[in-house]
């Protein structure tokens, strides 16, 4: 749902001279499948071993009881992510400026809450008006 919403906002993001990427720990073939299914105009990058998510300090280990539940659902994270550790990134959206500084950070431990793409667009608008 979030990727679709971001796709809708993509023309505005690009109009502001910015780029958009999505990062998930799962293997390329899964990223390719969603990319095709949703017909996305931005890349989905594979974060093998959650190395980049680690650097942003977003990684958590699933408790055993949740592991069991996800396995029952057929969410085989070990297969999806190509590692035995049941780890995931907390959902997050960042805006980074051209000086490599994070200008907006939205991290939520509750995966059912996501920022609106329109908020991201308005933050970008402010950023491009007042550089540095």
């Amino acid at each position: 749902m979030e990727l679709e919403a971001l796709q809708t906002a993509l023309p505005e993001i690009q109009r502001l001279g910015a780029n958009l990427i999505a990062i998930a720990p799962e293997l390329e073939k899964y990223g390719r499948a969603i990319h095709r299914r949703l017909n996305l105009g931005f890349d989905i990058l594979t974060d093998r071993g959650l190395q980049v998510a680690e650097q942003f300090r977003l990684v958590y280990v699933l408790p055993d009881y949740l592991k069991t539940l996800y396995s029952q659902f057929g969410s085989k994270l070990d297969e999806f992510n190509g590692e035995d550790a049941y780890r995931l990134p907390m959902p997050a959206r960042y805006i980074v400026d051209q000086q490599n500084v994070i200008r907006s950070a939205n991290v939520n431990p509750d995966y059912t809450i996501r920022p609106e793409p329109s908020e991201t667009v308005s933050t970008l608008e402010k950023l491009t008006k007042t550089p540095g």
Binding site: I13, N19, I23, D43, F80, L88, A92, Y94
Partner: peptide, 23 residues
Amino acid sequence: NPISSAGLLAKGPLVITFFRGHW
């Protein structure tokens, strides 16, 4: 294709969204 943050940031600001996966 390898995509670098530096390459994208050379062109403009970058929006990065971390998500859990397709499931």
